[in-house]
Design a protein around this nucleic acid. Structure first.
Lengths: 266, 266
DNA sequence: TTTTGCGTATCATATAATAATACACGCAGC
DNA sequence: GCTGCGTGTATTATTATATGATACGCAAAA
């Protein structure tokens, strides 16, 4: 049915991508049948597409169980991404310094629609698995990083975002009240950083400072997560925030002018 | 021409993947014409495939320059990979401890054909960019990690690998003499670890210890890179190797039995 | 101004993807 | 040990779908 834009839309390619997207936290290894079920494609199509992805090295296949798994090529995609994102190269050395200085986990996040994406992570303490790996997407409104970035936007956009961006409950203490989130964002406007507690994980304090880009708008942030067992909000503000802001500010200059915020997604 | 396996090979999908692979260290941002040139596809095909990838969120497009770039989805691929690789979850906390203990860069690498892939990196010191990001592929024979893993293979396989696996020059001091590499591997067989100098970068000392998997064969290794300006080979062996081996050995047990080395690529 | 290169859009053609079908295998229950 | 189900695999005729030549508009270069 040549759905989207008719002639310049290749359905087979799109279907192949659906196979790739079928793998996530809870589906780490899929059989042909599962793949077909999860993608909604019929058995034959799944077979052909999965086979192609296997031959092309995008999917590994267990010779015994015949189940498919993401291949190392998936990591190479990240490798290529890192080279293409000018921010990463600028930020990395400074983030390393910061993490060594603080002795706490430091992250680089970017805005992606109404979500944030962890682009680089420098774990210094043992934490839960998801906090140690890159590529995670979280609703921006539920994270200190998202709020810190949003705080650099014009008031009208802030309000619209607080109103409309997606939310999801992660812990019993995740804030779902948009008014409260709005206040947190406005606080970040005044402070120049954002701090939050127990949004993604219980007893976790997150604090973030925006990396100012073109037009004064931030599309990235330096973020730091610490345990509420060893830290208090006040101590974080006194001891971490200044260094966090210094780091973010040190990264910002290179991005004031170039790269006009462009590069839109679909 | 339905090249590979005729009926269960979807050419359009494979072509789409070629577009993705066109992005690398030196090609971080490509125009339609460049994309066509690099993939060998004609203009129309490139146009349709790139458009599809854009619509599906795999490629960002600068509205002004009309050039394409890897999107955040490329990082999400890495995210999915991490969940699917059982080794990462097991290793991560121990790697964090090790890096904090040593105060030096610690890496987790896996074997992928005759190359190694950096699966996780915990940089503690500023280094060159490529050493801070995951997904990099390097010829196994040129790396301490590759040699450490190879050393766990049967003698015949070791010999065949030393003879046949690919090599490439990275620095003036990269060893291209296969006899010498063979000796290094045999040394690793005796020592249980491998150490090398200036293979990838001048004045860099690399040392690696294998993570023993099923059948006593290693498909992964814990690796550590330090600067020859502040370290000597002997000091590395005395101060780093023991802790490195402890860490690798602590990760190994879970992989002695399960996951029969399977999951072959194409 | 002319030329060149690029991104975009359209269209007739037949190639290449489709989905139905059939077979082989392992496993559960009976 | 037989039967039936679920799976992975393989083959086929059919036509929908991807193709690539062609043409247009717009820049920047000559």
């Amino acid at each position: 049915m040549r759905s989207k834009q008719d002639t310049l839309y290749v359905g087979s390619l799109a279907k192949g991508l659906r196979l790739l997207r079928a793998f996530d936290e809870e589906h780490t290894e899929l059989s042909l049948a599962e793949l077909a079920q999860r993608t909604g494609l019929d058995k034959s199509a799944t077979q052909r597409l999965a086979n192609t992805l296997h031959v092309e090295g995008m999917l590994d296949k267990d010779p015994d169980t015949r189940r498919f798994r993401p291949s190392h090529a998936w990591l190479q995609m990240a490798y290529a991404y890192y080279w293409s994102d000018p921010l990463v190269g600028q930020a990395m050395p400074k983030l390393i310094d910061l993490s060594q200085d603080l002795g706490e986990t430091v992250n680089l996040t970017e805005l992606s629609g109404d979500h944030i994406v962890y682009v680089s992570r420098l774990p210094c303490k043992r934490t839960y698995f998801a906090a140690t790996i890159v590529g995670r997407r979280l609703p921006a409104l539920s994270t200190s990083a998202g709020r810190a970035m949003l705080a650099t936007f014009p008031a009208a956009e802030r309000a619209a975002a607080v109103e409309g961006w997606s939310l999801r409950r992660f812990t019993p203490t995740t804030t779902l009240d948009r008014d409260e989130i709005g206040k947190s964002v406005e606080q970040a406007v005044r402070d120049g950083y954002s701090i939050s507690t127990g949004q993604m994980i219980l007893n976790e304090i997150g604090v973030a400072s925006p990396i100012i880009g073109p037009g004064g708008r931030a599309y990235a942030a330096v973020q730091c997560s610490v345990s509420a067992h060893t830290w208090t909000r006040d101590r974080v503000i006194q001891e971490i925030v200044p260094k966090l802001q210094d780091t973010a500010n040190a990264i910002s200059p290179s991005f004031q002018t170039q790269r006009g915020g462009g590069f839109s997604g679909a």
